[in-house]
């Protein structure tokens, strides 16, 4: 399995922010997106996850292959940790949550309502959700926000294990996870440029 992205252009709020993005990630590799705030990391990741259409370009894998995790985790505070995971496991038609609970050390928290978790614990639960999707490509948007060092290590290990099983990961993060499989991709080179013209077209630019 290989994810090949060719000449992808993405837009935020109707304005192209990145254009000509091309890269390829193969099995067992992780791609780390780099670039200043506002460059379009989140937009690119949402486009890859199939949440918004690309302006142009190709993504070789179907959106069905992608598991997406963003800044917010989609956790219901009145459900317990176990119920939260079970729900997503049901949605993704997987019936196994023990592996996910073990990976992120949530065993002692399993029957606690998610509303009572600390920010870092919530984040762990949110990331554990990736394991119950059973999807090969992880798309991670700032996955380490509010994680402490130990939890970052847990997360790093989970990503490593995922890659070792033949998975892929694309992430936007500023923290070094200690992954030797990680390839950096500087997004600054793809910043969309257009010239101001009096003769504006359909897109008003």
């Amino acid at each position: 399995m290989e994810l090949v992205v060719q000449d992808l252009s993405v837009a935020r709020g109707g304005l192209p922010v990145l254009s000509g993005v091309s890269f390829s990630v193969s099995q067992g590799q992780a791609l780390v997106l780099r670039g200043p705030n506002g460059i379009g990391k989140t937009t690119l990741l949402r486009t890859l996850a199939g949440l918004q259409p690309a302006l142009s370009g190709n993504i070789s894998l179907d959106r069905e292959a992608m598991a997406y995790a963003a800044h917010i985790d989609g956790i219901k505070s009145t459900l317990t940790v176990e119920e939260n995971l079970n729900f997503w496991a049901d949605v993704f038609e997987l019936n196994e949550i023990e592996h996910a609970i073990a990976c992120f050390e949530l065993g002692s928290l399993r029957s606690r309502p998610a509303g009572l978790l600390s920010a870092g614990q919530k984040r762990r639960l949110g990331l554990a959700r990736l394991l119950v999707t059973g999807r090969p490509v992880w798309i991670l948007d700032e996955p380490t926000v509010s994680l402490d060092q130990a939890a970052v290590a847990l997360f790093g290990a989970a990503v490593k294990a995922h890659l070792a099983q033949g998975g892929l990961a694309i992430m936007a993060t500023h923290i070094d996870l200690g992954l030797e499989e990680a390839l950096p991709l500087e997004l600054g080179q793809f910043r969309a440029r257009s010239t101001l013209a009096d003769n504006f077209d359909e897109a008003f630019l």
Partner: peptide, 8 residues
């Protein structure tokens, strides 16, 4: 909702 939209 984002996650549901990316789900099967």
């Amino acid at each position: 909702l984002d996650l549901l939209a990316t789900s099967p």
